[in-house]
């Protein structure tokens, strides 16, 4: 009996440590998500010809994700905007245009064509769980305002969201 006590004690200790450390091991394997901008997100239309052409900020965003603990999806939307009096929504749009990613393994639902940002979430891509760090590059496009869009100063805020089930 006496010889069994240390073993029982050790097993209890091991189980106790396991219960304590299990949540930490989970947190160490969390998904990570970050967004970097490579340029100022400012568009200027100050000539007649500029009004007739899309204005492109090349590689404006780098979306970096590491889905270590679960499958993930990333979405984007217009979180806020302000416009001068007379602005008609739809007369000028912001678009995201996927350019490249360092790896496509595990990537699905990748939207590769330019799409108009709206105030509703739109999925950019999904990735299944893995340890790879993914860098997605996107252009930000302000479509040609033409001659009908209200002149003045516009502000916008975009929101990128990573979700996991």
């Amino acid at each position: 009996m006496q010889n069994n006590q240390p073993i029982t004690y050790r097993m209890r200790l091991f189980c106790t440590l396991l219960i304590i450390l299990l949540p930490f091991s989970k947190s160490l394997a969390q998904n990570t998500f970050s967004l970097n901008t490579t340029t100022g997100l400012n568009f200027n239309f100050n000539t007649a010809s500029s009004l007739e052409n899309d204005n492109v900020l090349q590689n404006a965003f780098i979306v970096t994700v590491r889905p270590r603990s679960s499958n993930i999806s990333v979405y984007a939307r217009i979180y806020y905007y302000s416009a001068p009096y007379g602005f008609v929504p739809g007369s000028m749009n912001l678009e995201l245009d996927y350019k490249s990613v360092n790896s496509t393994t595990g990537v699905s639902n990748l939207v590769t064509s330019p799409f108009i940002l709206s105030t509703s979430d739109q999925r950019l891509f999904s990735i299944s769980r893995r340890t790879t760090i993914f860098n997605f590059y996107y252009d930000l496009i302000c479509t040609a305002p033409g001659y009908s869009t209200a002149t003045g100063h516009y502000n916008f805020t975009l929101m990128f969201t990573m979700t996991s089930p």
Partner: peptide, 13 residues
């Protein structure tokens, strides 16, 4: 689980 970040910009016409 959800994680969000925002960025802001301007347009001048």
């Amino acid at each position: 689980a959800q994680s969000s970040t925002t960025v802001s910009g301007t347009i001048d016409i």
